[in-house]
Design a protein around this nucleic acid. Structure first.
Lengths: 357, 357
DNA sequence: TTGAAAGCGCTAACAG
DNA sequence: CTGTTAGCGCTTTCAA
């Protein structure tokens, strides 16, 4: 193994000089720097991570705690993880993957054994047992996703990054209201998600309801599991309870395709008979069997922001509290103006959907 | 921060004794061990990861290199990652997440800076530039997925874990042949996957073709992108080219729901008019709008096996070469006996699907 | 069964 | 601008 001492000897300088070339914390004359750099290259030297960590108390590693429960918003999780990893790399950090399953113990482990410099925690619930440990921790942490149902509560001292789900919900209703829809049903996440107090689901609902009130829109909310059967049951019931429903908002990745399949099966054309707005990653919206008008969940941006925060904190910046990402709704083929209710005989050919762009 | 020296002082012993209590590499008298353990607990001591790594040249970290290309078999990747992480933890290891995007450089980085003890590499292609570095590396590595199209070629010296895709393909055809199908079409991964030489796609095809020959089954193969449009085009063409097609094999997670939606749309009942067999994770098969007869891609098992191999290697075991997991086909609602071809007037009611268990 | 002591490879004062 | 030196916290011979 090539050590710093080897490089120093090869370049005819002292170890510290080599160290300073690497860290750039001291100005080195051009010739020496070049000579050292040359030695580094020819010898193929790489600093020993453990030694560096011991001497400097920095590991250049960020811990990322992901929920284990596979099958729940998988693509979003994956995108976030990848965004975190690539952003981290671009700042010189590596990423240690931890599962949420380990709970508070993982937080203490990271803290106690100095295995990472900071941590990113996903899927934090209300009264999450990790929160107290994170607050007390020496190392900075940032949460992806708000643990609370209302902004500015319970996150004292912790940095958070999340989509502004309240605004996202509102944006969906506004878009539909603009198109003339007045009867809207919401297909939400599975009941378990609401019960767990994951926050984002509740906040979305708040936004949806507020906007519905403002625009005189009637709103029906149904949590659904992401199976065809569950979606079918919920949608059927919605149309029975309120036959005048002309638009749906879906916040449930797994329910998207089942929903579209069902509507097709029932002979309801999208968007001629019913408009659909989704809150989901762009990828899901674009690749759906009907390209969906959607407020995108900016997974990449969330991952990137979280890392940048942490890098900032590690460079001495102060915590900045909660940062919500403004929602962006992209009109696609799944929404259109509400059909004229008075004349059900009008041929559908002339009402091809347009996104309203 | 609590150090080993603190514990030693608190317990009234030497540092080395504490160290040996922790590692168990020396027999310690019960009383001293208990006293030390008590000190450890009360002080809340955790060994410093960097210091330990420096002194012992072991980090207790496994590197996991995942493909970045998000959107490609995402759920499988995610499941593998989680299985790797939990299995690793159960053996006392943490997991460092690397993206495939970093390429060979990441391999050299892990090797050079001793940041991990071993690595797991996913999505290895033919002529993957990482292979030479992995072969030369000091640290053990195991590949998830065979980089070659044929077993026992080009993996010299490297451990591999993968599903036996050849047998999986064969199993699909056998199942359909048993049900009387003689005209089968295969919807495969996107063309890019075959071109990239990812191996598993080619091996599946080999198995499908061999079994088709054996059983006198006519096979049509179509790579498809995972969009509704692409699937619709491919399927429509298949039925035009060979109207007698009564069964489909799908190896493309993204194509599953579009396919089912399309068949429903075209009025082809599953499995009465057409049987569908998938090669995909169980989760996808179970939650599809029609529960799918499928050969499952055992993501969890692959992740677990990979880690166990690595742990074994780190404990001194010899490389074991390639290990293929035998495929398991689970009959569900999507396959049934072929409809009597001579009497197209027979009502479909009496031909309800059964999986043939 | 335990202790003493010499590093592991690097960083960061402190000194020139 | 560069060198000397004292650790960082732990593991592991070597001695007792």
């Amino acid at each position: 193994m090539v050590t710093l001492a080897d490089v120093a000897r090869h370049a005819g300088v002292s170890a510290s000089t080599v160290s300073y070339v690497l860290s750039g914390k001291r100005s080195i004359s051009a010739p020496t720097r070049e000579r050292i750099q040359h030695s580094i290259d020819t010898l193929g030297y790489r600093p020993h991570a453990g030694a560096r960590a011991l001497a400097s108390s920095r590991t250049d590693i960020l811990a990322l705690m992901m929920p284990l429960r596979t099958g729940l918003y998988v693509p979003v999780m994956m995108e976030i993880a990848m965004a975190v990893t690539t952003t981290a790399r671009s700042h010189g950090y590596d990423v240690l993957l931890l599962t949420g399953e380990e709970g508070p113990e993982a937080v203490r482990r990271v803290e106690g054994s100095a295995i990472a410099d900071a941590m990113i925690v996903m899927d934090v619930g209300l009264d999450d047992p990790r929160l107290p440990w994170l607050r007390e921790a020496e190392r900075p942490a940032v949460l992806i996703g708000l643990p609370t149902e209302t902004v500015d509560a319970g996150t004292d001292g912790l940095d958070c990054v999340d989509l502004d789900f309240e605004a996202a919900g509102a944006r969906c209703v506004e878009h539909l209201a603009e198109l003339g829809h007045t009867r809207v049903a919401v297909l939400g996440e599975p009941p378990a998600v609401y019960e767990r107090g994951t926050g984002f689901a509740a906040r979305t609902l708040t936004g949806l309801r507020a906007a519905a009130d403002r625009h005189g829109v009637g709103l029906l909310h149904r949590p659904v599991d992401g199976t065809y059967a569950a979606v079918a049951a919920a949608v059927t019931r919605v149309f029975e309870e309120r036959p005048g429903t002309t638009a749906l908002v879906v916040q449930n990745e797994a329910a998207v395709e089942p929903l579209l399949a069902l509507l097709r099966h029932q002979g309801r054309a999208v968007p001629e008979d019913v408009s659909v707005v989704a809150i989901c990653p762009d990828q899901v919206a674009v690749h759906a069997s009907v390209p969906l008008t959607a407020v995108s969940v900016p997974a990449q941006e969330m991952g990137r922001l979280a890392v940048e925060r942490l890098v900032g904190r590690l460079a001495g910046e102060e915590p900045r509290g909660t940062e919500l990402i403004a929602p962006r709704l992209t009109p696609r083929a799944s929404t259109g103006p509400v059909a004229a209710p008075a004349s059900p005989d009008v041929p559908t050919e002339d009402r091809r959907g347009h996104g309203g762009r």
